[in-house]
Design a protein around this nucleic acid. Structure first.
Length: 737
DNA sequence: AGCACGCCGACT
DNA sequence: GTCGGCGTGCTC
C-alpha cells in the first residue's frame, strides 16, 4: 500500500502522511485533495513511499490527485525542502507560497448564485461529523432534503448562512451545479511583441578585452556548477557579459533565470534583454503582479515556453525544468532577502539551486556583499573583475564638501549651489540625492524639546509641508500638523533637518530659473507616473532632480553630469555593524549616475566627516581596499562572514512580555550542545513599531552546520515555551540585527 | 492557521 | 441551569 507525504499550508513543520493506493512516483509534485481535521484541503505530494512515519491507524486516505497541471519539477521540490529546512520555516507554507494563486485554491466558478447540491463528501460529513456544527448541519440537511438549493433560495439566505455556504463549498461538501470548468490559463506561446517587432539583432556589440575574458571564462565552464562573482565598476558593462553568456546558454536550448532587486525600478533592463533575444520568450515575475498574468507567466516558465524569466526575489522559485544559468544582478542588494514570513535570501538560494542543477550562477555587482567577496577570496566563488568602464568615460570625480554640524546641516552649502548653477548653465542635468522623504524629519518645540513622536512607533512624525500632514514613515500613521507643542502648548514649533521637499524648496529659492523635479515615493505614486517622469528627464525637460534612492538604481540619464549627496552621514551613526556596507554601495551607485555618456561627471558629498575612511574609499573608487579593511575588522570581531547568525525576534504589546519570552527561550538552550553563543535578549533597534514592542535574541556560531544543528534542537524545545500574547519568528542569516 | 475541547463568569 | 470567553493542543 503506497503512502504519500503531503505538504499542507499550515504552520506545522512536518509533512503529513496519507494512504493513496492509486498514486505512483509520477504524481510527486502534483496537488492532492486530503482530509485534514474536519476540513478538506489541497496539498502537494512531496514523497511517495511504502511506510508512513506515524501509527498507520491514524493515517487517513488521500482524495483525488489533481493532474490538470503538470507536476512541479522534482528539483524545485528539493529546493523548497531545502528552503524550509535552512530557514526553519514550515514546509507546507514554503511550498504553497511558491505556487501561483490558481493552483493554490480550488478553481471554482463564482458559485454563490449558482444552485448547489450535496456531494458524497457532504453526505459523509453530515452522517459522521458535524456533531458540533449545528448551523452547518442544518444547512446541509436542508440541501439533502430538497436535493439542491436553488438560486432563488441562495439569494434569500442570511449573510451568516451565505458564509456557511461558501465554507461548505470550500470543504467540498456542496458543489455548484453545472460548474463550467474554469480553464487553467492556457500555455501562451511567445506573444507577438516578443517575436515580431524587435529586429533580429546580432551580438555585434563588441566586448572589451576584460568583458571578453569574463564571458569566455564562464562560457568555457558553463556545463558545471560554478559561482562566478562578477565584480565590475559602475558602467563596466556587466550586463553585456550576462547577455553574451545567456546567448550561449539559450543556444544550447536551456532556460535562464535572471534575478534583479526590484523589477519595477528597472524596466530598461527587461527591455534590453527582450531586444537582445527577440526569438526567445521572456516572462517577468514579481510578487505584486496581477494574478492572471502571474499564472500565465508561471505556466510558461513551467512548460518551457518561456526561455527567460526575469524576476525579483520570489522568482527564485520559478518552476523551470530546464535551467542552464542563473544571474543575480546587484547581488549585494538587500531586497534579495525577504524580511517577513519566509525569511529567505534569493541570492543564497540561487547559489544553492545552481549547485543542485550543476549549472553556473553569476553574482554581479559593483560593490559585492562581503559574504560573496570573502567567498571569492577563499576560492569558493570564482571572481571576475571588470575594473574599467566599458566606455571611454572615466569614473566620476568625487569630492567631499565639509559642513559643520550647526551650519547647513543636511541642507545645501553655498559651494554646492554654485556647482549646481554652473552645470545648469552648461545645459547639463544635476541630481541632488537625499535619502529622506518629506519636508523635515522632525518638528521640534523650541521650549521643551518635544519632537513630534509617533505614538505607535519609536520614530518621529515627518513633516510633509505640501500636504500639511505629519506622517510616520514606519507605520503609515498620519495626522494634521500641530499648531502648538503637544507637551507644553508653545506655539513656536519649527522644522528641523531636511527632506526632499525642503531641499526642493531651497533650490527653488536659490535657483529660481531652474526646472526642478522631485522624485520620491510621494511623487511617483501613480501607475505610470514614474515612467513619464523618466521620459521627461531623458527629454531634458528637467534641470535638477531631487530624489531618494529611487534615483540611484540602474537608470542612465545621459545629460546628468553632477550628483550631490546630502545626508550620507546619517548611516555613520548607525549601531548596526553592517551599516557601512550599504552606505558604500549606495554612494557608489549614485556616483555612477554622474556622466555615463558625456564628459567626466562629478560627485559632491556633503559631510561633517570628510576624512572618514569610508568616504576616502568612495573617492578613490577603492572597493577592494574598503572591503578588505571591513573584512579584517569582521575577522577580528568574529562577525559575519566569519561567523553565522540567527535572530529570534519577538513582539508583544508590552516589552516585558517579549523579553520574558526570550529569556525563557534562552533558558531552553540549556542542555543543547554545540559551539554556539547565545546573547542576552535585548530590545530591537526599532523598539516600538505599529504599536508593538519588539525584542530580539542573537545566536552566533563559527560553524554553519553547528548553528543549524543547534537551531533544530532549540526550535523543538521552543514549542513548549508558552508564547503568551507574543508573536515570534526566527530569522536565519539576518541582514539587520 | 483553523478548529475543537475545556474550564470559568454573566445571562435566557 | 446554558452561552461564551479564550487558553491549550492537535491536525496525517
Amino acid at each position: 500500500m503506497p503512502y504519500v507525504k503531503v505538504a499542507i499550508d499550515v504552520p506545522v513543520a512536518t509533512l503529513f502522511d496519507y494512504c493513496a493506493p492509486h498514486v505512483t512516483a509520477a504524481d510527486i509534485g502534483c496537488r492532492v485533495r486530503v482530509p485534514f481535521g474536519r476540513k478538506r484541503l489541497l496539498g502537494v505530494i512531496m514523497e511517495v513511499g511504502a511506510t508512513p512515519s506515524l501509527d498507520p491507524a491514524k493515517v487517513r486516505p488521500a482524495g483525488d490527485v489533481l493532474r490538470d497541471a503538470p507536476p512541479l519539477p522534482l528539483a524545485l521540490l528539493e529546493l523548497l525542502s531545502f528552503c524550509s529546512a535552512y530557514y526553519h520555516h514550515p514546509i507546507g507554507e514554503v511550498v504553497h507560497a511558491s505556487l501561483p494563486g490558481w493552483l493554490r485554491i480550488e478553481r471554482k466558478a463564482p458559485a454563490s448564485s449558482r444552485p448547489v447540491t450535496l456531494t458524497s463528501d457532504g453526505d459523509v460529513a453530515l452522517d459522521q461529523a458535524l456533531h458540533r456544527a449545528p448551523a452547518m448541519r442544518s444547512l446541509l440537511t436542508r440541501v439533502r432534503t430538497f436535493g439542491l438549493l436553488s438560486e432563488q433560495r441562495i439569494r434569500e439566505l442570511r449573510p451568516a448562512e451565505r458564509r456557511l455556504l461558501r465554507q461548505a463549498i470550500g470543504h467540498g461538501w456542496l458543489t455548484p451545479l453545472d460548474a463550467g470548468t474554469v480553464q487553467a490559463p492556457s500555455t501562451v506561446l511567445p506573444s507577438a511583441d516578443c517575436t515580431s517587432s524587435a529586429t533580429a539583432e546580432k551580438p555585434d556589440r563588441r566586448l572589451n578585452a576584460e568583458q571578453q575574458r569574463a564571458m569566455q571564462a564562464i562560457v568555457a565552464d558553463a556545463s558545471t556548477f560554478h559561482c562566478w562573482l562578477l565584480h565590475g565598476v559602475t558602467g563596466s558593462g556587466k550586463t553585456e557579459v550576462y547577455l553574451e553568456v545567456m546567448h550561449r546558454v539559450l543556444d544550447n536550448g536551456k532556460q535562464v533565470l535572471f534575478l534583479v532587486p526590484e523589477i519595477g525600478l528597472t524596466p530598461q533592463l527587461e527591455q534590453r534583454i527582450r531586444a537582445r533575444f527577440p526569438k526567445h520568450a521572456l516572462v517577468t515575475m514579481h510578487s505584486n503582479m496581477a494574478s492572471g498574468q502571474r499564472a500565465s507567466h508561471w505556466a510558461q516558465a513551467h512548460s518551457g515556453a518561456a526561455r527567460i524569466v526575469v524576476g525579483a526575489r520570489s522568482a527564485i522559485f520559478a518552476p523551470m525544468g530546464n535551467l542552464g544559468l542563473i544571474v543575480v544582478d546587484e547581488e549585494h542588494d538587500s531586497s534579495f532577502k525577504q524580511m517577513d514570513g519566509i525569511r529567505y535570501s534569493a541570492r543564497d538560494l540561487a547559489v544553492w539551486r545552481a549547485r543542485q542543477l550543476n549549472v553556473p550562477v553569476i553574482l554581479g555587482s559593483a560593490t559585492p556583499s562581503l559574504e560573496s567577496y570573502q567567498a571569492a577570496l577563499a576560492g569558493r566563488y570564482r571572481k571576475l573583475a571588470l575594473p574599467q568602464r566599458a566606455t571611454s568615460i572615466p569614473l566620476p570625480d568625487v569630492r567631499m564638501i565639509g559642513v559643520n554640524r550647526e551650519g547647513s546641516r543636511g541642507g545645501l552649502g553655498p559651494s554646492v549651489i554654485d556647482a549646481i548653477r554652473q552645470r545648469i548653465e552648461r545645459s547639463e542635468q544635476v541630481l541632488v540625492f537625499i535619502n529622506r522623504r518629506g519636508y523635515a524629519p522632525v518638528l521640534i518645540c523650541g521650549d521643551c524639546g518635544w519632537c513630534s513622536p509617533c505614538h505607535r512607533c519609536s520614530a518621529r512624525l515627518v513633516l510633509h509641508k505640501n500636504r500639511q500632514r505629519m506622517a510616520c514613515h514606519h507605520c503609515g500613521h498620519e495626522e494634521i500638523v500641530p499648531v502648538a507643542c503637544g507637551e507644553c502648548g508653545n506655539a513656536d514649533l519649527h522644522p528641523l533637518g531636511y527632506g526632499t521637499q525642503r531641499v526642493e524648496a531651497t533650490l527653488r529659492t536659490a535657483l529660481p530659473a531652474a526646472r526642478i523635479m522631485r522624485v520620491d515615493r510621494d511623487t511617483t505614486r501613480g501607475r505610470n507616473t514614474w515612467a513619464e517622469m523618466r521620459a521627461s528627464i531623458t527629454r531634458h525637460d528637467v534641470d535638477i532632480l531631487v530624489g531618494t534612492q529611487l534615483l540611484s538604481k540602474g537608470h542612465d540619464f545621459p545629460n546628468l553630469s553632477l550628483v550631490c549627496v546630502l545626508n550620507a552621514d546619517q548611516s555613520l551613526y548607525s549601531t548596526d555593524f553592517r551599516a557601512a556596507e550599504p552606505l558604500f554601495a549606495q554612494l557608489t551607485q549614485v556616483a555612477g549616475r554622474a556622466g555615463r555618456a558625456q564628459g567626466r561627471g562629478a560627485v559632491l558629498i556633503q559631510s561633517e566627516f570628510p576624512m572618514h575612511p569610508l568616504y576616502r574609499a568612495v573617492q578613490a573608487h577603492d572597493y577592494d581596499g574598503f572591503a578588505q579593511a571591513l573584512l579584517e575588522e569582521r575577522r577580528q570581531t568574529d562577525l559575519p562572514p566569519f561567523s553565522h547568525h540567527a535572530v529570534l525576534r519577538a513582539e508583544a504589546l508590552q516589552m516585558e512580555h517579549a523579553l520574558a519570552f526570550l529569556h525563557q527561550c534562552v533558558h531552553a538552550t540549556k542542555g543543547i550542545t554545540g559551539d554556539v553563543i547565545v546573547f542576552d535578549p535585548i530590545a530591537a533597534p526599532m523598539q516600538r513599531l505599529k504599536g508593538r514592542e519588539r525584542a530580539q535574541l542573537l545566536v552566533q556560531s563559527k560553524s554553519r552546520p553547528l548553528l543549524h544543528a543547534f537551531l533544530d534542537q532549540w526550535l523543538k524545545k521552543l514549542t513548549d515555551v508558552r508564547a503568551n500574547r507574543v508573536r515570534w519568528s526566527l530569522d536565519v542569516d539576518p541582514l539587520a540585527i
